[in-house]
Structures are given as structure tokens and as C-alpha cells.
Amino acid sequence: MSLFLLMVAFVLTGLLNVSNKALVEWNLGQYRDLYVLAYYATPLLIGTVMLKIRRQQGDSTDMRVGLLMGFGGALALTCFLLALQGMDGIVAFPVRNLGNLICTATVSIIAWKEKLSRSQKVGIGLSLVAIWLIY
């Protein structure tokens, strides 16, 4: 069951990216605000209903962290859709993925004093080489 859920998340994440690409390829980029609004308003509705059913309540920390994430998530998607307008998908998707990996690792090192293992150092090096090759 656990592996099935991971596969569901994997396939849905992939399809979401394809949907972003399709929006641009079908020349619908000028409607991106509507797309992003529906993209987040739909899970907001479903999630709110589920929280009510489960009678789950959070605190102010949950709210602050969630709102900050939402700010980052919405702007990240909007900027990425804008980037896709002028870049090939075979470049934009991998570069964004590896860029996220490198930046998140860097933040983890600086903010959370996480140590780099040898394999992670090699991973970062390979990511930089991959970005250079793809771009």
C-alpha cells in the first residue's frame, strides 16, 4: 500500500509538470493567473472540507509557516510558467529540479548546519555539471 501511494504521488507529480508545459505549448500562457488560482483554490477547498470533517485544528505557527510556503509556492509556479514561455521543457524542468536540489542543500548547510556527506558533495558536483550540459 505504501509503495502504491508513492507511485500515485510520482505519477501525479509528473502529470502536474506535463500540465504546466501543456498550458504554455497550447498558447494559453496569458491565462496563467487563472490557472494558478484554480491550481491552488481547488486543493484549498478540498483540504478545508477534510480538516472540518476530521476536526483538525492548527496553531498560529502552522498558519505562519503555511502562509509563507504558499507565498513561495505560488510565485515559484508563476515564475516557472513565465520561464517556460521562452525556454524548452527539456532545459527548464531539469535545471529547475537540480537548482532546487542545490539551493535547498545550501540553505540546509547554512541555516541548519547540516554536514555534507561525500556522496552529497558528488551529487552537487554532478548536478552543476548536468545544469551546464543541459543549458
Binding site: 491552488y40 483540504g47 503555511g66 502562509l67 504558499g70 509556492g73
Partner: peptide, 9 residues
């Protein structure tokens, strides 16, 4: 997660 969606909207 729900607050995240609210923040995005």
C-alpha cells in the same frame, strides 16, 4: 498544507 494553499491563493 491547507494554510499553504490559502497563502498561495
Amino acid at each position: 498544507n491547507v494554510w499553504m494553499y490559502a497563502g498561495s491563493v
